[in-house]
Lab assay of single mutants.
Amino acid sequence: KPRTPFTTAQLLALERKFRQKQYLSIAERAEFSSSLSLTETQVKIWFQNRRAKAKR
């Protein structure tokens, strides 16, 4: 499955949200993903990867 190329605007929004909160609830994820027109899975995986990156 090819990787999702996120737009610059989407990445900025994701990073901004991540700075506020490293873990999203299911409801927050649903709302946030639709506002960015991404799937919930894409947002979930992005947050997982971003948390892993923050640990390094």
Rank of each mutant, 00 (worst) to 15 (best):
A52S: 12
E40N: 07
L11V: 04
R3Q: 15
L12F: 07
Q20E: 10
P5Q: 13
L38P: 03
T8N: 12
F18H: 04
Q20F: 11
I26E: 15
T41S: 14
R50P: 02
I45K: 08
L38F: 07
Q20V: 08
Q10W: 02
E28T: 02
A9H: 09
K1G: 15
R29V: 15
E31H: 00
E40A: 08
R50L: 02
Q22C: 08
W46H: 13
A52W: 07
S25A: 06
K17W: 01
A52P: 01
A27T: 11
T39Y: 02
T8W: 06
N49G: 08
I26Y: 06
K17R: 09
R29T: 15
R56V: 14
K53A: 13
R51N: 06
Q22E: 11
L38A: 01
N49A: 09
F18A: 00
A13V: 08
K17L: 14
P5V: 12
L36V: 09
R29P: 03
T41L: 09
A52M: 08
S34K: 10
L14T: 02
L36Y: 06
K44M: 13
T39A: 05
K53G: 03
L12G: 14
T41F: 13
I45G: 08
V43P: 02
R16V: 12
R19T: 14
S33E: 00
K1C: 14
Q20R: 04
A9Q: 11
P2N: 15
L38E: 08
A54I: 07
A54V: 10
L24I: 09
R16Y: 07
Q22V: 04
T8Q: 13
S34F: 11
S37L: 12
R50H: 02
K17E: 05
Y23M: 10
F18I: 09
I45M: 11
E28G: 04
A54K: 06
V43M: 02
K44C: 09
E31M: 05
E28P: 01
A13T: 05
S33M: 07
L14E: 04
K44E: 15
S37Y: 00
F47R: 02
Q22D: 13
E15T: 03
R29D: 04
R51V: 11
E15R: 02
R50F: 00
T39L: 04
A52Q: 10
Q42P: 00
K21A: 13
S35Q: 15
R56S: 08
P2T: 11
F6I: 04
R56H: 09
W46E: 04
F47G: 01
S33P: 03
K21T: 12
S34I: 14
Q48L: 07
L36W: 06
N49R: 04
K21P: 01
S37K: 12
R51F: 05
E15G: 02
K44H: 10
N49V: 06
A54T: 07
F6P: 03
L36E: 07
Q22R: 06
T41W: 10
F47S: 02
Q10V: 09
I45P: 05
E28D: 04
F47K: 00
Y23G: 05
S34C: 10
Q20I: 04
K55S: 12
R3Y: 08
I26M: 12
R56M: 09
R19V: 11
F32D: 04
A13F: 13
T39H: 10
Y23T: 14
S34D: 02
T7M: 02
R16T: 14
L12P: 07
F6G: 02
R29S: 14
R56W: 11
S25M: 00
K55M: 07
Q10K: 04
R29N: 15
E28F: 11
W46M: 03
T4W: 05
E15A: 01
E28I: 01
V43T: 02
L24S: 01
A54F: 04
T7C: 02
F47Y: 06
W46A: 01
A52F: 03
K21H: 11
F32Y: 04
R51K: 07
Q20Y: 07
F18Q: 03
K1M: 15
Q42W: 00
R19L: 15
E15P: 04
T7K: 00
E31L: 05
L36G: 00
S37M: 05
T4P: 08
K55W: 09
E28W: 02
Y23R: 09
N49L: 08
I45F: 06
F6D: 04
A13G: 06
T39W: 01
Y23H: 14
Y23E: 14
A52L: 07
K53H: 14
R29K: 02
Q20N: 04
K44R: 11
P5E: 15
K17F: 06
T41P: 04
R50A: 13
A52V: 11
N49S: 09
K21S: 13
Q10E: 01
R50D: 01
R16L: 14
P2L: 11
A9T: 12
I45D: 13
S33Q: 03
Q42I: 05
A27M: 05
R51P: 03
F18W: 05
L38Q: 00
Q22L: 04
P2R: 11
K17A: 14
L38W: 01
R3N: 15
K53M: 15
N49E: 15
K53R: 11
L36D: 00
Q42C: 05
E40V: 05
F47C: 01
S33T: 03
A13Q: 15
R51I: 11
K55Y: 05
Q22W: 03
S37I: 03
T8P: 12
L24F: 02
K44N: 13
V43Y: 03
K21N: 15
L24H: 02
P5T: 09
K44S: 14
S25E: 09
L14V: 05
F6W: 04
P5G: 04
I26V: 12
L11I: 08
K21I: 10
K44V: 07
Q48C: 06
F32V: 13
P5F: 15
A52D: 12
Q20T: 06
